[in-house]
Simulated scan of single mutants.
Amino acid sequence: MQTFSTGMSNTTRWTGMLALLVCIVAIVVMAGRVTDTVAVPLAGLLLVILSITFALSPLRYEIHGHELVVRRQVGRTTADLRGASVSRDDGAFRGLVRVFGNGGFFAFHGVFYSRRLGFVRVYARNRDHGVVVTLRNGKTWVLSPDEPDRMVAAMRAAAAS
């Protein structure tokens, strides 16, 4: 098994902290309005959204034989690398539009669209090191390991086996 870290970029870190601060301020303001029947459910919804986005954010990537595993804070996602096309692409994050997912609150994950890549699944914490993986089934993933060249070489070896 090979493990590849994915560090959080400063932009992602500050976006997450700013969003967290906004959520805390919103909850405090709503908690001060005890008579408002919407305040408590809305504060609860903000906490649920915060928890889900943190839980789904990628932690690291692992290669087990021919399988790529994206470890999350809670759970994991796997893909078979046999027959996959893997390439480093520093411009992979340019022009991505979020369709459904998280676009910067602790990470970038979910379904995104770009004119160049089409619909992609993104599992990243840093937009500086793009790695594009096109699986045998036609699905495309965009990852961001801290050592992209080393991970590309490991994934190509796993895809060839």
Rank of each mutant, 00 (worst) to 15 (best):
T78Q: 04
L81N: 08
L20F: 09
A79I: 00
A55S: 06
R33W: 12
A55I: 14
V111W: 15
L96G: 06
R88W: 11
Y113I: 12
R82E: 13
D128I: 12
T77N: 12
R72Q: 01
Y61F: 01
G44Q: 05
A55T: 02
R121A: 15
I27A: 06
L47D: 10
T78F: 11
A39M: 04
R127H: 02
L50D: 11
H64N: 09
S114L: 02
C23E: 09
T53E: 01
R127L: 07
V97W: 12
G101D: 02
F112T: 05
T53I: 15
D36P: 03
L21C: 04
E62G: 14
G91R: 13
N102P: 07
V86E: 00
A124N: 03
G83A: 07
V69N: 07
H129T: 14
S87G: 12
D90F: 08
R94I: 10
V69F: 03
R33M: 10
V29N: 07
V38Q: 10
V99I: 03
P58R: 00
F105G: 02
L117H: 07
G104Q: 02
V120W: 08
R76N: 11
A26E: 11
L68H: 02
V48Y: 07
I49T: 11
L81Y: 09
G130C: 08
V22A: 15
A43S: 04
R125V: 09
D80S: 02
T35K: 10
G104F: 03
